[in-house]
Amino acid sequence: MLQLETVSKTYRNGFTALEPIDLRIEAGERVAIVGSSGCGKSTLLRLAAGLCPPSTGRVLLHGRPVIKPEPSVGFIFQEPRLMPWLTVEQNVAFGLRGPARHRHASVSSALLRVGLTAYGHYYPKQLSGGMAQRVAIARALASAPQLILLDEPFSALDAIKRAELQEHFLQLWESEQLSTLIVTHDVEEAIVLADRILVMQPHPGRITEELRLDLPLDNCREAPGFEALKKQLIQSLRPPSVGAGQTGADPVPFAVAHAIHG
């Protein structure tokens, strides 16, 4: 579905944010990219969204090159980014096209899915952080995208709200079978939300490891192997010099891990 072919990004000042990266996301797949701050993971996501052009390589959606943002791709930002002058309903309808009746139906069903039907006429300033982010999710869902890109979508929330929204998002994913690409620095979030995890290292940004997970969707935090997987991921996030002993890490029962770039 989404394909990145030797995509790299070097800024005008000569800073290489991203080394050439190849990445393929199949329909219905949930992929997470984990990395510490400044490793280029957000850049990768912006390139995939068509928000900024890559320095080399190309981004393909269904085999067609992405030059500007595509309507079939939704983006959920780190912050809700709601228009303060629009109500919840109008924010969810933002950018929707087509006849008013269809738009109205899409908005209602999106609000229903995030459980905010009763708040359609509220303004963003009247919402809590978690609710505002749910509105942002509804806005991304309303356009019925095939692929959703998420940039640390729950990082601004407290731990309880975050876990709640993650659960919520999983339910949505189950019912919609969306393809998702999520970028996060939170190892746990990656394990909960993805079935494939890419580990990124900074200076320059590159993918150093790929894991396929096979954890159950429900209560995956309680699943055996979760803690071991978490430990392993944290280990792989460390800079290579520190994590030199990672070959000795415990085997992970539910994951097939293999290094891409050593």
Binding site: K68, P69, R81
Partner: peptide, 10 residues
């Protein structure tokens, strides 16, 4: 950031 939302919806 708001302008980016607009760009994202095409």
């Amino acid at each position: 950031k708001l302008v980016e939302v607009g760009r994202m919806v095409g």
